[in-house]
Design a protein around this nucleic acid. Structure first.
Length: 182
DNA sequence: GCGACAG
DNA sequence: ATCTTGTCGC
């Protein structure tokens, strides 16, 4: 089972969504949403501090035990090799994969074909389906090759792999729905 | 319609 | 990430 997690915002309010899918058939097994008010502003390379409260709430609500978590953000592709996907994996001691739509332009960053090197370390891979692709990096307890293989196995005709595509649309629908309930 | 993308 | 509106395309 693979679980996609993402957070959508509307002003100070945010909605986090976790979607558990079977693998490799990608059938939805569980969905959870958690609302919170954010207190931490967004600062590049510190995304985890803003999103962890949502992930923690979602982990409390999840009933299933996914084998791997897919996070909308980077893993080892980070100044200190610890992006939000890594941070989350370490805190909960689970396997994680970071998937993001773009690079940040970090110091010591080199693109070697589809491979991303950071200060000489192989920290990411570009995975493309159509015109634009996504960047995959290891979060925690996972090899880059397996992470890339799993992400490829979750692509279903969208730029983002299905677990994140679903978590993204569910969290967006949830935060917009909260507006209508006020 | 839904998703991608311009901007 | 979000705001907003239209257009192109499957």
């Amino acid at each position: 089972m693979v679980c996609g997690m993402d957070v959508s915002y509307r002003g100070v309010r945010g909605a986090g969504a976790a979607v558990v899918l079977s693998y490799p058939d990608l059938k939805i097994l569980e969905k959870k949403v958690a609302f919170r008010s954010v207190v931490v502003p967004y600062t590049p390379t510190f995304l985890a501090f803003r999103e962890m409260p949502f992930f923690t709430a979602l982990m409390r609500r999840l009933e299933m035990r996914p084998d791997v978590f897919m996070i909308d953000g980077h893993g080892t592709y980070h100044p200190v090799f610890c992006g939000s996907a890594s941070h989350f994996g370490v805190v909960f001691n689970v396997s994680t994969i970071g998937v993001a739509g773009g690079l940040m332009g970090l110091e010591g960053e080199v693109k070697d074909g589809g491979t991303i090197l950071l200060k000489g370390r192989r920290v990411g891979m570009a995975i493309r389906d159509g015109k634009r692709g996504v960047y995959v990096s290891v979060g925690h307890k996972m090899s880059l090759d397996l992470a890339a293989s799993i992400v490829r196995g979750c692509i279903r005709g969208h730029r983002k792999p299905e677990p994140l595509f679903l978590a993204d649309s569910i969290s967006r629908g949830a935060i917009r729905g909260e507006l209508h309930g006020q």
